[in-house]
């Protein structure tokens, strides 16, 4: 089959995966905005959110047949519990791995090491508690998981549609929160000039915590979406995490809309690249993108503020 035949299918898959990258990437970019710090443990927040959502669905799953309405309710419950688990994990992470360092005015490198430590801890704890095999959603949750429509011949299943629409809704809500709420104003002010924000009456510490929690809510729900499409395991965070980080850098780290654009572009590039180079090269393509941006345009597609990040 030629690329032209496959184009729309690759595009659909690319946008789908890209939307999930975008949801995770927002957590990196928001935290980077307020702290000029890459939260490398964010990938484990995503993983814990996936488990939180999956366990909730399994616990709530009734015996017997699942009709479409019940299926939708279960997915919503999974999203809510996934988001809550992610938010809680991010909150705990900020408290234990970052805040103590901030209080002591620790050097930047210390945050990185702390993040790696927290990341290994969370991942291995999950491996120990949740088992080392991958966990799936109950098979019959999407018994109606058939093609709902096609885009120029590309098959779109109801599950794909759910994943994409939920991701899109979260991106839109986040955009509204950042541009139009008191918390959003606080986040933007802290990102642009934390000292001056505090002079305006912004409680910078509180904004930082809430930024972590927002990133965690998104990543947690994103984790559930990812697990719905693929599966969940204690090591699932790493690759999507690094890819979402790539997406954030691609869009311009610190830039909310850039993270969304970066996620979608990365999802597409990765899927087109996979067609030419083979599925084994999916991750290679993604990381080549990261290296290329860093070489050619380190400030990213929409970014302009890397120089300010002292």
């Amino acid at each position: 089959m030629s690329f032209v035949d496959q184009f729309w299918q690759l595009t659909v898959t690319g946008l789908l995966v890209g939307a999930i990258y975008a949801v995770i990437a927002l957590g990196y970019t928001l935290v980077y905005g307020v702290l000029q710090l890459i939260n490398f443990a964010h990938s484990e927040v995503f993983m814990l959110g996936a488990f939180g959502g999956l366990f909730a669905v399994r616990a709530l799953l009734p015996s017997g047949n699942i009709n479409a309405l019940l299926s939708v309710l279960l997915v919503l419950a999974g999203l809510a519990f996934g988001a809550a688990s992610g938010g809680l994990a991010a909150f705990a992470l900020e408290r234990t791995a970052y805040r103590p360092l901030r209080r002591r005015g620790a050097p930047r490198l210390a945050y990185l090491i702390s993040a790696i430590g927290a990341s290994l801890f969370a991942s291995n704890l999950a491996g120990k508690e949740f088992g080392r095999d991958s966990v799936n959603l109950p098979k019959d949750l999407f018994t109606y998981n058939t093609e709902v429509f096609s885009v120029f011949g590309a098959r779109v299943s109801s599950q794909d549609l759910v994943v994409f629409l939920v991701a899109l809704a979260m991106l839109l809500i986040l955009d509204r929160v950042v541009s139009g709420t008191q918390l959003g104003r606080g986040i933007r002010a802290v990102a642009q000039d934390a000292d001056t924000a505090s002079l305006m009456g912004v409680n910078v510490e509180r904004v930082i915590v809430r930024t972590f929690v927002i990133g965690g809510l998104l990543a947690g729900a994103g984790g559930f979406l990812y697990a719905m499409k693929f599966n969940a395991s204690f090591t699932m965070g790493f690759i999507p995490g690094v890819k979402a980080f790539t997406a954030a850098v691609l869009g311009g780290i610190g830039n909310v809309r850039g993270a969304v654009l970066g996620g979608l572009v990365l999802g597409l590039v990765e899927n087109y690249g996979q067609f030419f180079l083979g599925a084994d090269y999916t991750d290679v393509v993604a990381f080549m993108v990261l290296v290329l941006i860093l070489l050619v345009r380190p400030s990213g597609l929409l970014g302009e503020r890397l120089g300010r990040a002292a």
């Binding site: 002010a189 642009q192 000039d193 000292d195 924000a197 002079l199 305006m200 009456g201």
Partner: peptide
């Protein structure tokens, strides 16, 4: 700040990527 101290910092420090209106809104945070 909440107790009534307004501070115009050295070097002005306006929020560079906020509009004039938004900067003023920050003053009324």
């Amino acid at each position: 700040a909440a107790m009534g101290v307004g501070h115009v910092p050295e070097g002005r420090r306006v929020f560079p990527r906020m509009s004039v209106n938004e900067n003023l809104e920050m003053g009324a945070y």
